[in-house]
Amino acid sequence: QTRPTTPAATPALNGGATYVGEAVCIACHAPQNKQFTHTVHADIFRKNPKNELQQKSCEACHGPGSNHLKNPSDPANRPSLVGFTKEWGTPVATQNAQCMQCHSGGNHMFWDSSTHARNQLACSDCHNPMAKVSEAGLLKKQTINDTCYTCHQQQRAEFAKRSHMPLPEGKMSCVDCHNPHGSTAKALMKADSVNELCYNCHAEKRGPFLWEHAPVRDNCLTCHSPHGSNHDKLLTVARPFQCQQCHDNTNHQTNLYNAGQLLGGGAAPNSRMIGRSCQNCHSQIHGSNHPAGARFQR
């Protein structure tokens, strides 16, 4: 097996096989062809190929087919073609190298260093190039999110929590934040920092503000769970306790707010235990541009 950085030389794998043309393939694989015809791959290969490889259609991905024709039904002859299923058994690196013939660079530039590559994922673990199951991207499931959830079940559960990004409602996808094909940032993020990523949608929090809240400027994830949370606003802990993890200053921040201070709690109700809690007063917590906004109250 060769490393992913070295695209497989398919003819060499096939013992000198030659191209037979897609008509030969279709003669036996009509059901596959029916589905494949509706894919963007088919449109490119058949209607507007840009190079010789793309003209090969089926064999552009599966490799030259002459050796396969010698004994097409014998499992022992499977190495004569590149297959993209568990059943076929082509090594993952070989599969991926076939895809990289066209899909290198661009969005895929960092695939080789990605956590997906390190975990030996094949392109066809997420994509089904033979059928148009998804609206775009030739995914194995109908949506980006459903595709990601097949492995990232934990995130699926997080999106079911009280506050969450609008993925279950179909208004956002995992790929809005992550590049599954690789990134130079952690967690396959599509930006160089967490905040830079969040500002893509939350531009109003970009500032820079006159008065900045240090951990806010540092990393949105200091206070927020990005996928979902049991708490309001994707917070990691209920307020005021969220804020009190850092604020043990010289004033009310140090108090132990408690059940007795709830509305109807029996003792005196306290604004820090009601409604927006600390943000009843410190409402500009992401930063203030008011000259008097050092306490984020205006």
Binding site: N107, E135, I144, E169, K171, S173, V175, H181, K190, N200
Partner: peptide
Amino acid sequence: SPFATTSAGVGTTLSNKET
């Protein structure tokens, strides 16, 4: 993805809860 790439940008899906 239809409207942004996997490397940059948001708006990678056009759908809603009913889709």
